[in-house]
Measured scan of single mutants.
Amino acid sequence: TLFEALYDYEARTEDDLSFHKGEKFQILNSSEGDWWEVRSLTTGETGYIPSPYLAPV
């Protein structure tokens, strides 16, 4: 399942991933609570992002 960003987000740590509203992601790991490890389909980068900022496509 692909997810889309509902809002912009600016990374706060080196493990976070900055992204823009509308960017699409592949979920790599969603078992860590509200922070999911994802791969951006736009940039190819991986990192953690807050799951409340995402919605299924």
Rank of each mutant, 00 (worst) to 15 (best):
V38Q: 01
F3S: 02
K21S: 06
F3N: 00
Q26R: 07
E45A: 14
Y9S: 02
L17E: 00
E10A: 10
P50K: 12
W36Y: 07
T42W: 12
S40G: 03
S18R: 04
H20K: 15
A11P: 05
P52L: 15
Q26N: 06
I49T: 04
S18M: 04
E4V: 14
K24G: 02
K24C: 07
Y48K: 14
E37C: 10
S18D: 04
D8A: 06
S31N: 11
R12M: 13
Y53Q: 04
G22P: 00
L41G: 02
D8P: 05
T43K: 02
V38C: 08
T13D: 12
P52Y: 15
E10S: 11
K24I: 15
S40I: 06
R39Y: 11
W36E: 01
F3E: 01
G22F: 05
T43F: 02
P52R: 15
D8C: 08
E45I: 11
G22C: 03
I27P: 01
V57H: 07
P50F: 15
A5R: 00
D8N: 08
R12I: 13
A55F: 09
L6P: 03
I27W: 05
E45W: 09
L28N: 01
S51R: 12
A11L: 02
I49Q: 00
D16S: 15
D8R: 04
W35E: 05
V38M: 04
E14K: 10
E10R: 09
A55L: 08
G44H: 06
W35M: 12
P52K: 15
F19H: 02
K24Y: 13
E14D: 13
W35D: 05
A55H: 10
E4M: 11
E4H: 07
L28E: 02
G22M: 02
S30F: 14
E37W: 15
H20W: 08
G44V: 01
E10H: 10
V57Y: 08
D15L: 14
S51K: 11
L41I: 11
N29I: 06
E23H: 07
T43I: 01
S40Q: 08
D8F: 03
F25Q: 00
P56A: 10
V57P: 05
D16M: 13
E10V: 14
W36G: 00
H20P: 05
S18I: 04
S40R: 13
L2S: 04
W35V: 11
W35Q: 07
P50D: 04
S31I: 11
L6T: 06
E4I: 15
L6W: 06
L17P: 03
F25D: 00
S31W: 09
A11Q: 07
W35G: 04
F19L: 04
E10N: 10
T1Q: 14
I27T: 04
W36M: 05
T42C: 09
E23R: 00
R39S: 06
P56C: 06
E32N: 15
N29T: 08
G44R: 03
Y7Q: 11
E45P: 00
F25Y: 01
I49R: 00
L54K: 04
